[in-house]
Design a protein around this nucleic acid. Sequence first.
DNA 1: GCTGTTCTGTAACATATGGCACATATCAAC
DNA 2: GTTGATATGTGCCATATGTTACAGAACAGC
Lengths: 301, 301
Amino acid sequence: MTGTLAVERPLRDEIFERMDELTPAERKVARTLLARYPAAGLESTAALAGAAGTSKPTVLRLLDRLGFGSYPEFQDRLRAEATRSMSPLSRARAHRPAPRGANPPRAGSPGNSVFAHAVGHRARLVARLPDTVPPGEIERAVALLAGRPKHVVISGGYFSRLVARMLAMQLDQLIPNVDYADEPLGADVGKYLRAGRDSVAIVFDLRRHELAAKEVVSMAKARGASVILITDETLSPSADEADIVLPVALDGVPFDSFAALLVLAESLAEAVFHGAGEAAIERMADWERSVHIYRALHVRG
Amino acid sequence: MTGTLAVERPLRDEIFERMDELTPAERKVARTLLARYPAAGLESTAALAGAAGTSKPTVLRLLDRLGFGSYPEFQDRLRAEATRSMSPLSRARAHRPAPRGANPPRAGSPGNSVFAHAVGHRARLVARLPDTVPPGEIERAVALLAGRPKHVVISGGYFSRLVARMLAMQLDQLIPNVDYADEPLGADVGKYLRAGRDSVAIVFDLRRHELAAKEVVSMAKARGASVILITDETLSPSADEADIVLPVALDGVPFDSFAALLVLAESLAEAVFHGAGEAAIERMADWERSVHIYRALHVRG
DNA sequence: GCTGTTCTGTAACATATGGCACATATCAAC
DNA sequence: GTTGATATGTGCCATATGTTACAGAACAGC
């Protein structure tokens, strides 16, 4: 008759899906909420607002939009979920053996079973990608890049620069004026100084968040550019300055993996290709011709 | 590289065990805490005391006995546990169903469905990896690299060089004398001339098989080095000269993907890490220290 | 009985909290 | 530009919060 019919859907999922109907500042709150769920929401409004880089009223407005009458009411919901997720039942489920038995650990091949494990783990990271990247954020990123920006500049951190470079190479085949800045604060600073109101900056900042990333993001924002930040699930400190944040899962034992990161970059490029239409196809054709020239010059038969 | 060593024991367990050293009123608090864990502890002291039928100071005394300096400190711990128990990882383990349609391709989101498609395709490429790479070949490759070769040299083609470089960076953290040759037939030819009977050459050669790759492989073989060739399923022309061939699936529409390639490289490195044992761990520690020095020099606070 | 100890709740206080009105900033359309 | 409309932050207030000091209750040993 009364109360709680069935099991409520996690609030996290609703926030995740409704990301795109939020205002920019509200989105920042939503992001920190998802990044540190549910802890961030169980702190005070001031703490949450501070972590998100906004103000208390913004937090309250977000909750209002989500249909909560007050902050305590919102916290009640979170507490209920937390309790449910720590119930003996869910606990038992969590300790289950192997969720996805992709590769039966073939007996008698020690080196290979480690390899199989590693591959399986990475396959899972990639499979989880659609759950870590809010759909609305991707759409906005694609729209931005396919909307004929005057200029795009891309850079990464110590390791991630390689993926950054790959994305740059792919986008360069699709749209004009794509720069890759290997040393955004050094030799390549000019590529950022070139940025203006119609520019898009894509910054990778993973794990041990490098101070440099924050500086780069600030620099781009200061010049009026839109910033797309690609980071891990714990959110880079630059997150509150960026316009669009694309979080991706990296975690692994003993090593982190760039698998999902690469897939994100590639798929983003593919979506931009579809979004840019005719222009992209034409540009690709040009590109193809240039490669032939390059090869003719360098790869002498 | 991953952090968080050892998972803390749930606070609930400690409370449960130490029940008998509590005073009667404290025990009442402990009971309601366990009955509604962790929600009860995430409310206010007054609420918790009320639910337990005691007073606020009793709550505080209990926490004091458990070693918490303040109520907020206690709540921090609780929030941390809740967050951990709802982490994407435990979450993925919890609901088993949904093979992989996690995000229904929301109507009216054109850019995103293309993206979702691209991600799905790449996830499949990665999943197929164990079927494209013969297990025996992997084992031999791992054995070769973990068997203390005198020297390892790695190179790739026009695009694949980025993955080659990644593999080089990873292996460099695990074993000594790893070279990355960006232009194996040009400026970096010396790195191949260095090769000898105890060397291992890893060569990437994908798709439009570049003539250069064949030359590089021949050069390495001529000097007595073992050659590991990483190529696509159609097999590079260099395949018959190489000692070990690791084929990987790339094909996609409209673009090829390096997802499986990257996963292969990363997983290979991980297997080598396990295979190399003590030595690899020690080297990683050295590496870590160097990185700190690098960062201290370059990332001025 | 009384005495010393341990346990527990009441009262009071400084502070942090959620909430709100209002001013400013931002942005799109003209 | 100028104008509307929307989005966002600041300052303020009533209140609830965590914390402490203190007084009474419960209970042991004698």
